[in-house]
């Protein structure tokens, strides 16, 4: 059963400006983790902002828990927890005071709130620092607190917008495990990320966004099928070297379906990596580029994105 239904949703920030979200449609089923994957500027955050009633859509409609985001904002807000990309915390309050403030603003009171606060402090591992002001916390601790606030009151639908940006691996693992636990707890999760690995690890279903459009939607297996039997060949170049020219030369090569360059890496979707590799190395040598590392990957979301857009996900 769908807890979120999105129909032709669109957002244009100014009359003459481009569409930040362009006729996006999808459903999120109860109890699943649904990820929106895409590069920065793809429209993921704007989509969450509309679903959480922070922004009014300029086209289309969406329902959360059966309530329209346009006309029943208050009902929508009662049924969701949102974890924004920014650290929306009061740095001069401590963790317990932050949790109490945001809990009370959700309408929680009394012993139920006290218990919830204790539970969240335990989950975040912040019990020992609960009385310290937030400005003394590490980035990871702030991220965990930011997440805990969004989960106060155990809302049936939790929206997490890039919750693992700029944090240490330990805190990242902490958060990913927590998201899985939410699903196990019966909560539904809408998760946005530009990290392919996170989407692959967490998601029951994935929507891929680019330039405001939803360009693919399905389970990981369904999406990977889109690129067929193609392999992904990743060539890492020497430090400071750029691979744009190499990708350009290889793009029209035999057996090469897509080629893109990013940050000293050239990514190729190929029918056979073994067949293409000699040609790729020869071209690199001809351009005077040093090849530092070569990796052959099974089809994944990276290759799906490359297949669909002609660009690497991190472009």
């Amino acid at each position: 059963m769908a807890i979120v239904t999105v129909q032709e949703l669109g957002k244009r920030y100014s009359a003459q400006g481009p569409l930040a979200v362009d006729a996006v449609s999808f459903e999120i089923h109860e109890g699943e983790i649904f990820s929106l994957l895409g590069p920065n500027g793809a429209g993921k955050t704007t989509t969450i902002a509309m679903l959480s009633t922070l922004l009014q859509p300029t086209a289309g409609e969406a329902w959360v828990g059966g309530n329209s985001v346009r006309t029943q904002a208050m009902q929508v807000r009662r049924s969701i927890g949102v974890v924004p990309q920014e650290l929306a915390l009061y740095e001069n309050l401590n963790a317990r005071e932050n949790l109490r403030f945001w809990g009370e603003m959700r309408g929680l009171r009394g012993s139920a709130l006290d218990e919830d606060i204790d539970h969240k402090l335990e989950l975040t591992g912040l019990q020992d620092r609960a009385g310290d002001r937030v400005h003394t916390y590490s980035g990871g601790m702030k991220r965990r607190l930011n997440l805990a606030i969004g989960l106060l009151g155990e809302p049936p639908l939790v929206m997490l917008d890039e919750p693992t940006v700029a944090i240490d691996p330990q805190s990242r693992r902490y958060i990913l495990d927590w998201v899985k636990a939410m699903r196990d707890n019966g909560q539904t999760v809408l998760y946005t990320t530009h990290y392919m690995e996170e989407a692959q690890e967490l998601s029951d279903r994935i929507g891929i966004m680019d330039h405001g459009k939803l360009i693919a939607l399905g389970t990981l297996a369904e999406l990977v099928q889109m690129v067929g039997e193609l392999e992904t060949l990743v060539i890492s170049l020497g430090e400071g070297e750029r691979g744009e020219e190499l990708a350009e030369r290889l793009a029209s090569g035999e057996g090469i379906h897509e080629a893109s360059a990013n940050d000293g890496e050239v990514t190729l979707n190929v029918a056979s990596a073994q067949a293409v590799l000699p040609q790729a190395l020869a071209e690199a040598s001809a351009l005077g580029l040093a090849v530092r590392h070569i990796e052959i990957r099974e089809p994944n979301l990276e290759s799906v994105f490359l297949h669909l857009t002609g660009r690497a996900l991190r472009d």
């Binding site: 902002a49 959480s52 009633t53 922070l54 208050m74 807000r77 009662r78 969701i80 949102v82 924004p84 920014e86 650290l87 929306a88 915390l89 009061y90 945001w102 603003m105 959700r106 309408g107 606030i149």
Partner: peptide, 14 residues
Amino acid sequence: ESGTLPRLLISPNR
């Protein structure tokens, strides 16, 4: 600018 106002605006309050 810090994000706390948007967070407040999507809390169930007018």
